[in-house]
Design a protein around this nucleic acid. Sequence first.
DNA 1: GCTAACATTGCAATAGCATTGCATCGTCAT
DNA 2: ATGACGATGCAATGCTATTGCAATGTTAGC
Lengths: 139, 139
Amino acid sequence: MTKDIEHRLKNKDINPTAMRLLVLDFLTKQVAAISLNDLEKGMGPSDRITLYRTLKTFEEKGLVHSIEDGTGATKYALCEDNCDGDHHHDLHVHFYCNTCKETFCLPNTKIPEISLPKRFQTEEMNLIIKGICDQCHSG
Amino acid sequence: MTKDIEHRLKNKDINPTAMRLLVLDFLTKQVAAISLNDLEKGMGPSDRITLYRTLKTFEEKGLVHSIEDGTGATKYALCEDNCDGDHHHDLHVHFYCNTCKETFCLPNTKIPEISLPKRFQTEEMNLIIKGICDQCHSG
DNA sequence: GCTAACATTGCAATAGCATTGCATCGTCAT
DNA sequence: ATGACGATGCAATGCTATTGCAATGTTAGC
């Protein structure tokens, strides 16, 4: 239902415009994290910059989080947690498959506590694991 | 001693040219990981592309490793481990300071074992922690 | 219904990093 | 010497991210 999507936007204090409804709808259908390019290709003919800003807005409001998987292109995925703009503690692991080149959130695999050297203070953590995903795993 | 630097190159099967000696010497003097830009600025007047390729060569041969800290610019730092080109298992944590914007290797802080979901297979891991480094920590 | 204020969108343009092609030059072995 | 090969330097390009600005839509007040 469109109503559901609309509600999710409003809950995050995002003005539910047509474009945003479409983007959010598209994002919910994704299995893997997608780049701006993927989004542009996946959606109908839309303006790249608008999509870019839509993602930025979503990120600021805590609806999606961005992932730097080392491919050079930032990927985006919906937040599972109750993030808000300030607290993006997506402390789950991200997995990049070297075979299918997709980036997945592993929401149930959390980043463990790391004890840093004296006087280093953690604010964010970002763990990318690269390898072979379950789908590409042969045998 | 230049001899020492030269030996380190030869040990890694890298032809010790003047440029490479300079770059490696410069790298050893760094406290933090540096970007191509930093390298270019820090060295005398040198060609950016040559520096780029020098770093690539060093990376291939296992002398340095590259770090994606999310700033958009790839950073490089000397490997501490006995890496070779194939096995870049720099399983230590990298720390990005939000205050001084520097990226540090924490060679003694290793990435712990992570148990992934079934049929996911790890090949590399990359953990970036962002926060405040020991130098910038006030108090 | 009209209008002013504001948010959103779309186009153009730009910045910055990464990367390749090609020509030149140096080095080393025969 | 010369030929092969690696290294260097310049030019050019691709790609992602990002901003400026104008046009457009949307909302609230009258």
